[in-house]
């Protein structure tokens, strides 16, 4: 318990520091005093006299929503990663690795390039297409990987890899068949995963869905704990196993879909964060899920800080940074003797 407190305290301490660093550092250099003046002006502490409007736009309209989006996306992906790992009882599960993200990307690409009709507002249709694509992919992977009530790790990873390829092929087909090169370039940048589209108007949908999905999973904390013991034991504890698993799959597809529709497919947050935290605070999900949110939020915030700061004046897709960090981690995890879950 002390360890949990320590971890929670550390994360809560790092959060404001990281946020402050993220709004102060970016692709252009700003004086920290100017950054403070922007917030003072928006809080009504100061009338904003002498503050260049470009700096106000950079800090308030670009960096601040971007930092918040990084927190939401990173936190959401980590929570979903934790829940999926419980679902398949394996620490290698993650939306990106299991093909969920690429399914969502394929849905978005098909819609964006005009292969699916626009039904509602663009942001909603994007999310819907991503949700349906992701749901189809993860359901198929899960069904293939399940043998007589247990999920085979080999089958799971292989099915995920193959599903990612299939969804990647659908995306590639859509991009090849698209007649509009401008849309194509934008889409390809988006597919690599980037938070550069962050704006205040973009935030509410992913924030609301992540919050709702996270709370729903938190309510499932006990069934998730029980799943780790094995399905038979969970049954004997009176847990509605099938319902729980279906709920987790739908929630994972929903949250991942909306996040992919917002920021593209960003991998490995959902892999690294729950894994590290589980080794620190143990497996109970009522602790693991909230801490995963905090940890994922921080990790993506740092990754995006790297993506913004590494090339002056330019954008680097944050998905590239996460893959550079995440793949070695995944490989190390594969090499290690499998640890015990419950």
């Amino acid at each position: 318990m002390n360890r949990t407190l320590l971890v929670t305290g550390t994360l809560l301490l790092l959060l404001p520091l990281s946020v402050a660093l993220s709004v102060a550092v970016g692709s252009v250099d700003l004086a920290p005093a100017d950054v403070l003046r922007v917030y003072a002006a928006h809080l009504g502490l100061y009338d904003g006299a002498g503050l260049p409007p470009a700096i106000d736009r950079i800090v308030w309209d670009l960096r601040t929503p971007r930092v918040l989006l990084a927190l939401v996306v990173g936190g959401g992906l980590a929570v979903i990663g934790a829940a999926m790992q419980a679902l398949v009882r394996n620490p290698l599960a993650e939306p990106y690795i299991l093909g969920l993200s690429s399914g969502a990307s394929a849905g978005v690409s098909l819609f964006y390039l005009g292969f699916l009709p626009p039904l509602l507002a663009q942001a909603v249709t994007f999310s819907l297409a991503a949700f349906l694509g992701g749901l189809a992919a993860i359901t198929l992977v899960y069904l293939v990987a399940r043998v007589r009530g247990t999920v085979s790790v080999t089958r799971l990873l292989l099915a995920g890899v193959v599903m990612s390829s299939l969804m990647g092929a659908i995306t590639a087909f859509a991009t090849f068949a698209s007649p509009e090169p401008d849309k194509l370039r934008t889409l390809l940048f988006f597919l690599l995963g980037s938070l550069s589209g962050a704006r205040w108007e973009v935030l509410p949908l992913p924030a609301a869905v992540t919050l709702a999905g996270g709370l729903a999973l938190l309510a499932l904390a006990r069934p998730l704990d029980a799943l780790l013991l094995g399905e038979e034991q969970a049954h004997s504890l009176g847990i509605p196993v099938e319902t729980t698993k279906r709920l987790v799959i739908v929630l994972a597809a929903l949250v991942t879909g909306v996040l992919v529709a917002t920021s593209g497919a960003i991998g490995f947050v959902g892999l690294i964060v729950p894994h590290v935290l589980r080794s620190l605070v143990g497996v109970p999900h009522r602790r693991l899920l909230p801490l995963s949110f905090l940890g994922g939020a921080l990790l993506l915030l740092w990754a995006d800080l790297g993506a913004r700061a590494v090339l002056p004046a330019e954008e680097l897709p944050v998905g590239v940074v996460m893959a550079l960090v995440g793949v070695p981690f995944f490989l190390l995890l594969l090499r290690r003797t499998p640890y015990h879950f419950g």
Binding site: G26, S27, V28, A54, R57, I58, L62, R63, D182, F189, S196, R308, L311, A313, E314, E315, L316
Partner: peptide, 26 residues
């Protein structure tokens, strides 16, 4: 003066560079 031959610019760069004219090949 940007080092990369084919950069993807950040919004921050555009705000800081403060161009008098924007020309797109759109």
């Amino acid at each position: 003066a940007l080092d990369t031959p084919a950069p993807i610019l950040s919004d921050e760069f555009v705000l800081t560079a403060a161009p008098d004219v924007i020309v797109g090949a759109f």
